[in-house]
Amino acid sequence: MWRMVLTSVSLPIPFVISVPPVEVISDTVDENGVRTTIEYAINDEGKKVKITKRTRRVLQKSVVEHAVAERLAWAKFGKERGSKPGPDMATTTVGEHLVLKISVGNKSAEPEQTAEQAMKANLQKAGAGKVTCRLCKGDHFTAKCPYKDTLAGLDATENPDADTGEGPAPSAGGPPGAGGPGTGGKYVPPSMRAGASAGTQMGARSGSDLPTLRVTNVSEDTQESDLRDLFGKFGRVARVYVGRDRETGAGKGFAFVSFEDRENAQKAIEKVNGMGYDNLILSVGWSQPRPEGPGGGGGPGGR
């Protein structure tokens, strides 16, 4: 058993070095050879702290060549001149545990994955299925869609299966999570399950189940308030959304108008569809081909 022996030596130094007083309370070694040292010391802030150290000392013996043993006794030199034996924490630290697994299989032959491929693979592993663009149904993320600028905003209308939760969603390659409970055991939120009623959805009255009209061929400088005025004649308008270019803020020629009442919306379609507005002829229709009854109006809520 090794033991550090501390001996006090009176040094002929004419000044006092203040060393934080360390008080060793207990020093025990259990049957597994684990030494527990409890000590109290005063830290930099002048507070008394309890320090518990658990260490295990293992004596390693190794047979080395004579020359090697001799070199171990060499005095340190250069920048290390006068340093005490043993590794210095300033220059020598121990890194994190690493695993080197020697195995067959040409690792270099694996094609380098791009970040996007890696994410897709992870999604696949997590059971999320294929990555499908919501705009063009291509094999990429919606954000990376080359037709983003031209198709954005029409996404909800182009994707009839998205919110219904019924119909042949899984086979039609709808977005992940759109399918019924039959899609391979993956988690489907309650609101997306086939049996869920529209009324249980979050923000049920916020627009997703309101009768919503899609208005296209709107002039560039049309504002929300203009459309609210126009459609306000037919009934109470819950919400107006104008599709805009993200950078310039100019309108992209389409808008969604949600009515509170279905009859009023129907009336608005009949009256406004084909009407001249600014210098263009408006085209108005239901924002989504709906199944029977209320609900299923995607519109801006689906975005």
């Binding site: 080395v64 070199r71 030199f77 250069g78 001149r81 340093s83 034996p85 043993g86 590794p87 121990v94």
Partner: peptide, 29 residues
């Protein structure tokens, strides 16, 4: 014998280390 490791770098110093525990034996300045 492999007990010493010499290293040199662009910072003008040469170091020598004990390979078994990483202790720096000295520098050649």
């Amino acid at each position: 014998e492999g007990d010493l490791l010499f290293s040199c770098s662009k910072d003008h110093i040469i170091n020598v280390w004990f390979s078994h525990n990483g202790e720096r034996l000295g520098t050649y300045d």
